[in-house]
Amino acid sequence: METDKLFDEYYEKSLLQGGTTCCPGCGGPLFWRMTLDALGPNTIVYGDGPCAMCAIRNIKLPTFGLHFSFVADGSTGIVAALAAKGRRDITVVSSAGDGATGDISFGKVSAAAERNENMIQICVDNEAYMNTGIQKSGLTPFGAWTTTTPLGKENPKKAVPMIIAQHKVPYVATVSVAYPRDLKAKIKKAKGIEGFKYIHTVMPCPTGWRFDPAKSVEVVRLGVETWAWPLYEIEGGVLKLSMKPKPKPIEEYLRPQRRFRHLTKEQIEFIQREVDARRQRLLENDGKRIIL
């Protein structure tokens, strides 16, 4: 078939093999395609365990992984080996989900940041343990249903990018697959910086967030437009908002996701106030040094 040939040629050139095992509408392969586009072939990818692994399996570059709870550690060894061999031309990317990054291996990420290991650490944040079947993580947002928070999560989401920024690492950024140009620019920038670079990406999960897979990109775009997912970068300790959209009501982001459908009017108002307050603080600090 003519079309098949066309696509086979494309897959041949692409750094991500076609036909992943991810759920329909998963942002994982989309994110990796964009990221690998930006990084180029001279890259080693380290990571294992989370949903993102489904996409990582299809990466055609050298990959290495140990297990779920191993974040930023094997990559530390790879970075050291490259240093021992004098290979400064290779980019090391280390990837993990939100649960691994924010919960079980939080100390490892923090330590790698403190040692300023020369790697790009990526947190693929789908806001729960999705691979095991939607269990609450430290990065699950307030109010969200998961199988371990059937009444909604009681506590707010852990602000990992801001915590990592306080390690005085050279570069921290949040990205979203709904904004490919912004995403690629940030990945390219991270590649050019020496030291520990932290990229936090929102990962739309139709299965765990309970929405129509067709709305995958739309939902994360709404996340940015409602300021639930502000996009920013922290370079040399200075905060810079990547975009400052006119805020849409948070309900527009929450409504398509059935993990929030049980929320009361009061709870939604509470979330709105929290988002507004954070937006205010982000705007106040835009362009300023936020590291003490």
Partner: peptide, 13 residues
């Protein structure tokens, strides 16, 4: 874990 990464990347650990 770092030992594994380094060894796989060709370094004596």
């Amino acid at each position: 874990a770092a030992a594994c990464g380094a060894s796989a990347a060709g370094a004596r650990v």
